[in-house]
Simulated assay, not measured.
Amino acid sequence: MTEDTGWRWCQEVTVAFLNSSGTAVRSGSVTCGTHIVGALGVDWGTVESTVPLPVPLAPGARKRPAWTVCVDARRVPLGMRTGTREVSADGD
């Protein structure tokens, strides 16, 4: 889920995690693919950012953390916006 922050170059991104394995997750990372979108909906590029996975995550546990994901403000001129569309996680 994404929400505006008031800055066209940032979004609040909330991701739900469920550890469906039988072992705890102790480390890992979350990668967000944030698209730079023009006024007419044209996708001008994607910027990846990585944050630590919210660990530890016990077997069967759920977490729903939120991050403010931003790209360099000069990459998002007036009339453009960001849209985080891809999120992937890698845990150990």
Rank of each mutant, 00 (worst) to 15 (best):
W7N: 14
W7E: 15
R8P: 09
R8C: 05
W9I: 01
W9P: 02
W9M: 01
C10N: 08
C10I: 04
C10M: 12
E12P: 00
V13L: 13
A16G: 12
A16K: 12
A16H: 04
F17L: 15
L18Q: 11
N19V: 04
N19D: 06
S20T: 12
S20V: 11
S21Y: 08
G22I: 01
G22M: 04
T23G: 05
T23R: 14
A24L: 01
V25F: 11
V25Q: 13
R26E: 15
S27H: 12
S27V: 04
S27P: 00
V30F: 02
V30M: 01
C32L: 14
G33C: 04
G33M: 06
T34H: 00
H35M: 03
H35T: 00
H35Y: 06
H35E: 13
I36Q: 01
I36W: 00
V37P: 04
G38W: 02
A39P: 14
L40K: 14
L40M: 13
G41I: 08
G41S: 10
G41A: 08
V42G: 07
D43T: 08
D43I: 10
W44D: 12
W44Y: 15
G45A: 12
G45K: 13
G45V: 11
G45Y: 11
T46G: 01
T46V: 15
T46S: 07
V47S: 05
V47N: 02
E48C: 01
E48G: 03
E48H: 12
S49D: 07
S49K: 09
T50W: 03
T50Y: 02
T50Q: 13
T50N: 02
V51A: 08
V51Q: 10
V51S: 06
P52E: 11
L53P: 03
L53T: 00
L53I: 02
L53V: 00
L53E: 01
P54R: 09
P54Y: 06
P54S: 08
V55W: 10
V55K: 11
P56K: 09
P56L: 10
P56V: 07
L57W: 02
A58Y: 07
G60P: 08
G60K: 06
G60S: 06
G60Q: 08
G60V: 09
G60A: 09
A61E: 15
A61P: 03
A61S: 10
R62I: 07
R62C: 02
R62Y: 10
K63G: 03
R64D: 12
R64V: 14
R64A: 12
R64H: 10
R64Q: 15
A66W: 13
A66G: 13
A66K: 13
W67T: 04
W67M: 06
T68H: 03
V69L: 15
V69R: 02
V69S: 05
C70R: 10
C70E: 05
C70L: 07
C70M: 06
C70A: 13
C70I: 04
V71D: 07
V71M: 06
V71S: 03
V71R: 02
D72E: 05
A73C: 00
A73V: 09
A73Y: 07
A73N: 10
A73R: 14
R74N: 04
R74A: 12
R74W: 05
R75P: 00
R75W: 08
V76P: 03
V76Q: 04
V76H: 02
V76A: 01
L78N: 09
L78D: 14
L78Y: 09
G79C: 06
M80V: 01
M80P: 00
M80R: 12
M80L: 04
M80C: 13
M80S: 15
